[in-house]
Design a binder for these strands. Sequence first.
DNA 1: ATCACCCTTTTTTTT
DNA 2: AAAGGGTGAT
Length: 767
Amino acid sequence: MVDYISGLNDPQREAVMHGSGPLMIIAGAGSGKTRVLTYRIAHLIDNGVDPFRILSLTFTNKAAGEMRHRIEKVVGTEARNIWMGTFHSVFAKILRIEAKAIGYTSNFSIYDSDDSKSLLRSIIKEMALDDKVYRVNSVFSRISGAKNRLIGPDDYLNNSVIQADDESARMPHIGKIYKQYALRCFAANAMDFDDLLFNTNVLFRDHLDILNKYQHKFQYVMVDEFQDTNVSQYLITRKLAAVHQNICIVGDDAQSIYAFRGANIENILNFQRDYGKENVKIVKLEENYRSTNTIVQAANSIIARNKNQLEKHVFTSNEEGPLIDVIKASSDNEEGRLVASAIFETKMNESLVNNDFAILYRTNAQSRAFEEALRKVSLKYRIIGGLSFYQRKEIKDLIAYLRFVVNQQDEEAFKRIINLPKRGIGDTTIAKLSVIAAEQEDSIWEIVANITKYVAGRASFAIENFATLIKSFKLLLDQKDAFEVASHIAKTSGLLKELYDDKTVEGLARYENVQELLNAIKEFVDNPDNEDKSLATFLQSVSLLTTADEKEDDGDNDRITLMTIHSAKGLEFKNVHIVGLEEDLFPSQMMLESRNDLEEERRLFYVAITRAEKRLTISYAETRYHYGRLKMCEPSRFLMEIDQKYMKVSKQRSAPSRLDFDRPERPNRDRSESTSTGSMAFVRSLAQKTAQRQTPQQAASHTPSPDFAPTSTAELASGQRVEHAKFGFGTVKKVEVNGTERKATIQFEQVGEKVLLLSFAKLRVVV
DNA sequence: ATCACCCTTTTTTTT
DNA sequence: AAAGGGTGAT
């Protein structure tokens, strides 16, 4: 037997050895939490607990896979039988088994947020509501918020507080939309992400026999990243653990960064209340083994500003380590270059590998500048998250076919494929079909499948062909495996041919992507670990992939990792660059405006800092292209909030850009008192320090950055002078569109010293 | 029915 | 920047 106890410190050992009864582990960043969780499960199995009776909920499927692997090393292949995965994937699996009890069938579809929003769009249109008032995003987030608090459509409509709230937000009909949305999802035999948890709660509430079955099955329940669970998830775990009371939660309130999707820090406090303060064993893991003292203390200095936090003192006995480097760049592109060259230098000086580096940003859109810069210095990188493989149009198209063949009630999949490839079935025809379906009180598929009964003529011919196609695919479902069905569908539907005929670069890439999807299905079928090889199961696993789950490239795996801070949770790197430390970007303006939650942004920064083991570098840019427009940026307040004694200002590596000469006026905005002046003072001090450090040679070698303004747009009117950032190109005497003088939007791009005008179809600018 | 083009809007993080 | 929606031509 592997000795896994002796290497642990006291609290870690306590947590591992704790037998039955509720256990709460408050685990600071880098305190060896995963190790504890792994050994704890291994310890249980060693002591005779059946792996089938252990449920372990993790944050990503990848984390689950890794943990399973580590447990396997200790206890052997038995580890395969542990129930492990994300909340969504584990309960989707249970819902699939128990679907009948709540009126679904086991081949239900899972709507992703695009599907949900598209359905909401249709509903808002059908209800003749103003989509300017009822914006899909806000409607969706309100419905999602309600579901996460276990408020169903009827509860929503009957809740006077919520109704008053909607009233004051001038969206009194959200309840009706919610109700309609729920009905339509049900009719489509589909669940959205929130439904997977909501319906699990419904299942356990209304079917005590089923609840009982799982309560007894799961003798031990573990929940990792407990601070990121919402009420709906919390109640599921509470119900499941109610019989054995062997529930172990691991969390860190300082790393709660998902309140925006309903996560509730209160859950940690509720835990003690629910199981009785005297019954709950609490273990605090406060020693950080990951990072240098500088990094640990700097992180503490950030989080110390938050009012809402549990008492905890994270410390380390690691070495002091280098100070945190601060890089100031004049633009987002320059930030990319500076970070790339800093990584290059560190890598050479300390003989490190690409895997030792990570670049963490607040928003996915920030990755571009770093990608370009890294490519220029030939450093390999990988991007986690962003526009993922499964969100690409061609992939979603094929998946929509697969979904529809598995479940003909899937309305969103139907809308996607009915005229794809083009088969002459337009909006009018689809609208007609919906009308007939409503009249007959039948599903659209029933009408489509028997179209000749209802409509005759040209349109019906195309529909009949479509129906025949789908019926032929359905027949294959029972005879062939998922891969054969999928590749047959890809070929026969005409999707693959359409992409094959597209010989553009993008077309080629799309064709390869579809092949890649087919490969993934092949792998799924060939993988002996998968008991259930049905297409339905494949589709489910695909829709519940998390960003961290994305497949690694098989070839060269030594790569710098680029990702959002959210995706970085649970990971660690020797060298970390946190970039884009600008006010309104990080902390995010939206977060401050919509939820006024600076504390969550601070925790996010805390998470980012604590990813670093040895060296932390923070950077910001003074100007940035944001949604296509050049924006002047102020350094983030977070730069000041870090205890300054842990920071040093790096030498400025390039000249102030020409942008400095013609900054556009900042729009007037009420900045809150002290922060503004404070951060400006900080910038000045940075500038001073920088100036002092600069040698005369450096000052003389200022070269203007070559790639400043990739593209931008400008409104032009007659007589207006056209200027943008670093270049001007004269006065516009006239702007003509089809011979008529008018205002116009033009696009221009700088290539070297020249300015090219783009997008000229009908526009002539006379200078 | 489909396409090309233009204008407007959005504007974070993720299961 | 990118995506959605609308319009007029084919």
